[in-house]
Simulated assay, not measured.
Amino acid sequence: MGPEASSEAVAESLGAALSRHEGRPGRVQALRRLTGGATKRTWSFDWVCGESTQALIFQQTPGQSGPRGRVPKLDAHEDASLMRVARAHGAPAPRVHLLLTEGDGVGTGYVTEAVEGETLGKKLVGDAAFAPARGRMASQCGRILATIHATPTDQLSFLKTLSPGDEWEVYSGLLAECGVRHPALSYALRWVRERLPSRWRAGLVHADFRTGNLIVGPDGIRCVLDWEIARIGDPMQDLGVLCMRSWRFGGSGEVGGFGDREDLYAAYEEASGHAVDRERVRFWEAFSNLKWAIACARRGSGRRDDGSPASLELSAVGRRMEEPLWDFFTLLSTSPKGAPR
């Protein structure tokens, strides 16, 4: 089934696949498209089987991961396997209900249980209804990240291992390929290369753990989404991404726009038994700003076959390259030691 199939066709094929999985007939109701991402399509629906009705989420994903040596991109089977392992170890990953293949007639992807809550960053950092949650979310993030980083990876042989140096090679290569030249990008690349950590403890890294990828209720964080770029690497990377200003959505808290660094660090240390290397977190926060700037540059430089811009939306994303670059240099100037090393 092509990516632009009608909702009626998706509902029919999805219902048939779930009926085979359940071993009894059922039907899909209230199917609704949630997002329009470049690589995934997300639907919510109710699965009615017998006397029960269950709220579920269907994610249509690409059938293969990215080229070797590039940014990790898990396929549907790998993504679902990772979430199952992480959840079994105690992380609040989505509960996978069904893995779909091309033979199911709806494309590759998976079905997970729906989790009630909010993901919109602006609401999470500013809405009064989430004030009680904001007071505990930094500590919750520390405990959740400690759990993720301690997750055994013996069943996850498909994950790439990326050292800090590997990360630099991948992203500098991506920038070179897209052809964007900018003095600030050149300086940031050199700065990161000269400060690559030589000592780090390998663990499972989510790599996109941030506001916007967390489902939150009045009680706090209920689920962690978007595991498809996970890798084995330096766990401090996750703490750095979470503290990026781009993902604070205007909130005042340095952690995700909602909390304080010390609450995050203290909870992580207590739950993991490992000290937080604050300077290395700052390094990864700086590097993550550079990564996001490179991602913006790549999107903005996208072209159609005739050489015209890929889309107005992607061109607009490209213009945002300067925001994470500003954050990169601001971070260097405000770091307690002048610049993270």
Score class of each variant (00 low, 15 high):
G257Q: 06
A267T: 03
D277I: 01
A9G: 01
F130N: 11
P3V: 00
G15H: 02
G142Y: 07
K160R: 15
A230P: 02
W292T: 04
L214T: 02
A293N: 03
V241R: 04
C178L: 09
A80T: 02
R303M: 11
D79C: 09
L174V: 13
V205A: 09
S186F: 10
A293C: 10
G66S: 15
R319C: 13
L332T: 00
K337L: 12
E177M: 07
G233C: 08
L145T: 11
H89K: 14
A146L: 10
R84H: 08
I294H: 02
Q155Y: 01
H274I: 00
L325W: 06
V96T: 04
S311C: 06
A267P: 01
R136H: 14
E262Y: 05
P132F: 07
E262S: 08
H206F: 08
V115F: 11
P152Y: 05
E22V: 10
S65C: 13
S157G: 12
D154S: 13
A176V: 03
E323S: 13
A310D: 13
R143V: 11
R68D: 15
T151D: 04
R20D: 14
Y265K: 00
A266G: 07
H97F: 08
V281Q: 06
A286I: 06
K337F: 02
L332H: 06
V96H: 08
G69Q: 07
V241D: 08
A286N: 04
M321N: 01
E270S: 14
T330W: 14
S7F: 00
C243Y: 00
C49F: 03
E116Y: 12
S335Q: 10
A55P: 14
V48L: 14
R143L: 06
K73Y: 12
N289F: 05
E262Q: 06
H89C: 13
R87C: 07
N213T: 05
L162F: 11
V192C: 11
W284T: 04
G251Q: 01
D305P: 02
S198G: 15
V85K: 14
E322R: 15
H89N: 15
K337D: 12
V48D: 12
G259Q: 04
A295R: 05
E4V: 01
G36V: 09
T119G: 04
T330P: 00
D263Y: 00
A76N: 08
F45Q: 10
A11F: 02
Q29A: 14
L331K: 05
G256C: 03
E4K: 07
W292G: 05
I229F: 12
H274P: 00
R193G: 09
G69A: 03
R210C: 07
P94Q: 03
G90E: 03
G165P: 07
E323P: 00
G259F: 08
W227S: 07
P152T: 10
G253V: 01
R32N: 12
